[in-house]
């Protein structure tokens, strides 16, 4: 899952060899597609979902995304983030983590972030979140091998743990 136009469909096509439309504008995928990929000697189902900004759906495409997430309680979620806009992407990733899904984070569009002179410490992010974090460039396929190999390491993380790693959080109750 991930925001619109971060490259989810490109991931999907790369991983499954399927042919889902990929375009350079938000909102290309409005429905879900299922595909199969070889993973550790067995076939695993992968679902391409429409982009969503958060788990509180605002439009039909987001509704579809959230519904699929809820229907597949025991699946691993690959969170695709736009590395040049990490913070926005993390919001969705945290929501998914809070709901108890095992997550792998792909920091996609790594090249765009580099162009914009944004540097992300992926290892440190991985330590804080407690889930695998992999920089990727979906269009050229960089980082895919690593991403796939790390799917196994995905495990549910308690949000409290992340808060502890990040050095606490001001409770909303205090600020009013």
């Amino acid at each position: 899952m991930g925001h619109p136009n971060v490259g989810k469909s490109v991931f999907f096509n790369r991983l499954t060899g399927a042919k889902v439309l990929e375009s350079n504008y938000p909102g290309t995928t409005v429905d879900f597609t299922k595909g199969w990929m070889r993973f550790g000697g067995e076939d695993v189902e992968l679902i391409d979902v429409p982009g969503a900004f958060s788990l509180e759906p605002k439009d039909r495409a987001e509704e579809v995304a959230v519904k699929i997430l809820e229907e597949n309680r025991d699946s691993v979620v690959i969170c695709v983030l736009d590395a040049s806009k990490v913070e926005r992407g993390l919001y969705l990733a945290l929501e998914i983590i809070e709901r108890g899904y095992p997550v792998v984070v792909a920091l996609n569009m790594w090249d765009v972030a580099e162009d914009k002179n944004i540097r992300i410490d992926a290892e440190k992010l991985e330590r804080i979140l407690g889930v695998p974090v992999v920089p990727t460039i979906a269009i050229s396929g960089e980082g895919f091998k690593e991403l796939v190999s790390k799917i196994k390491e995905a495990a549910p993380v308690k949000i409290e743990k992340i808060i502890e790693n990040a050095g606490g959080v001001e409770s909303a109750a205090v600020s009013g």
Binding site: E87, I118, D121, A122, I128, I162
Partner: peptide
């Protein structure tokens, strides 16, 4: 709010915006 607050904490430690 809490979620954004947490994200800010995380990104401060991991993301560096160059010139």
């Amino acid at each position: 709010d809490e979620r954004w607050n947490l994200i800010e904490k995380i990104s401060k430690q991991t993301v560096e915006f160059g010139a």
